[in-house]
Amino acid sequence: MGSSAPPAQIPTSFGHELRACLRCRLVKTYDQFRENGCENCPFFKMDEDPERIVDCTTPNFNGIISVMDPTRSWAARWLRIGKFVPGVYTLAVSEALPDDLQALCEEERVQYAPPKRV
């Protein structure tokens, strides 16, 4: 996934319906997650099971970063989103992924780093 990767959907509204993926921190609206899932974490299959969205995403996040070129962005690398598709991300989420979904990440052999506590 370089700068050539197609960007993720851009949020269509900026209010309370915004949610951030707990693994990759991609920010989209609830409806966008329901229709297309998460571009970085397709194995969560949020587009197939809307209940998954509540488990995999959170409305509580802090700060917004639009990453146009993840490979060249120092900020993206520092935030560990340098390998994801271009898109709108959050700087930090507060909750950790539920245990069963962390296990799923392990099964899929993808990295998951729980958020740091305050």
């Binding site: 509580n60 996040f61 802090n62 900020a75 959050t90 700087l91 930090a92 507060s94 958020p115 305050v118």
Partner: peptide, 13 residues
Amino acid sequence: QVPHLLNVRSRRA
């Protein structure tokens, strides 16, 4: 100064 800008930790609800 750049790392300080990005060093936010989201508070829990």
